[in-house]
Design a protein around this nucleic acid. Sequence first.
DNA 1: CACTTTCTGGAGTTGCTGATCCATTTTTAT
DNA 2: ATAAAAATGGATCAGCAACTCCAGAAAGTG
Lengths: 204, 204
Amino acid sequence: MTTTPARRLTRKGEQTRARIVEAAADLMFVRGVAGTTLDHVRAEAGVSSSQIYHYFSDKDALVRAVVAFQNDAIVGQHERSFATLDSVPALRAWRDQIVAHQERMQCQGGCPIAALGSELGELDLDAREGVAIGFHRWQAAIRHGFEAMQSRGTLPAEVDVETLATATLAALQGGLLLCQMHRSTAPLAAALDTMLDHVESLAQ
Amino acid sequence: MTTTPARRLTRKGEQTRARIVEAAADLMFVRGVAGTTLDHVRAEAGVSSSQIYHYFSDKDALVRAVVAFQNDAIVGQHERSFATLDSVPALRAWRDQIVAHQERMQCQGGCPIAALGSELGELDLDAREGVAIGFHRWQAAIRHGFEAMQSRGTLPAEVDVETLATATLAALQGGLLLCQMHRSTAPLAAALDTMLDHVESLAQ
DNA sequence: CACTTTCTGGAGTTGCTGATCCATTTTTAT
DNA sequence: ATAAAAATGGATCAGCAACTCCAGAAAGTG
């Protein structure tokens, strides 16, 4: 993932740049990357066309910024959640929160990071690596939760928390995809419940 | 999912139509739907531009045909696999087959159906419904395998095979996504292994 | 206050892509 | 055989979207 060339930004410039990234993130979540034109972004962010090119060399650079933005937004949130997640009931509450959120969203859009990764996976190397970084952070956050359970003695020390965390993230992502396609939270709930049942069975 | 208007096709016409759909499916798997132009399809299928519009009213109609094609190709294959899958070792073999296939593909592309669904989910209602149909067939195929295990007494009758099959498909899809993003089969193996461990723990 | 750098507005331009049209050939049906 | 329907070739069009350019305003810097 190539970083944006260091560029001196004034406070106003930072705000404008942030406004562009947020607008692009929102639009790309709903309409996809290819379905979002820079003119849409221009209108949504309330900027002029040249401003976008002042802050980003091209559309790909903007997409990279959007990936980083969503990583911080989504994964950051889960990192905060898992900082205190160290018991099975807490995991069940985490599951409820996710299902409730999808319910509110009417099962639309799925996971913003997965959507970006899936659309750009084979087209934009930088974007794919950015998404991989996000997923890695996400998996680590979940793993920390399981490690906390091991520290408290809730989970046996011999459990492979690395594998378990990866499987949990996979269940979440697969569940979100089925949720989006079927416009129902049932498959998401099934995926997470089954995974947490498994964790609970290990926790005896 | 709206069906293609019944149209009288000669044998030659059917072949040409099939050639177009296959070429489009291949290209869209690699470059995505938006990244695949009808001119790419034209060249790959070795047809003239008017032929595409002779068989499909527009690009969306072609995409719908591609979704149906991938449903038959991918899900059809898994349906055949699960027709004889009625034990935990058989499930492990199924897992090995999937992991080996991704290894051969160098973890590129992920699941073709999921890729279509993810890109078109919020943009093309018909495409989303087509993908949902494919996932439903897929889940049913897996469920039939679990039901066969129940018939043989391998799996207790009180196990909710509906939920278990959905969770298994979710684990597969989530695993494939992580596999594609990380360019490694490890997360796919972790997701499937954990799910099959769970099935085995129920199978005692 | 000078002077540089950053930021902004908006009118182009260029290339591509989905879609159309029509003439011609091939196949089917009576 | 002959008319009708289907299939094909290829030129062309129209719109759109990424990107460019330049002039001028605002903001920092010494």
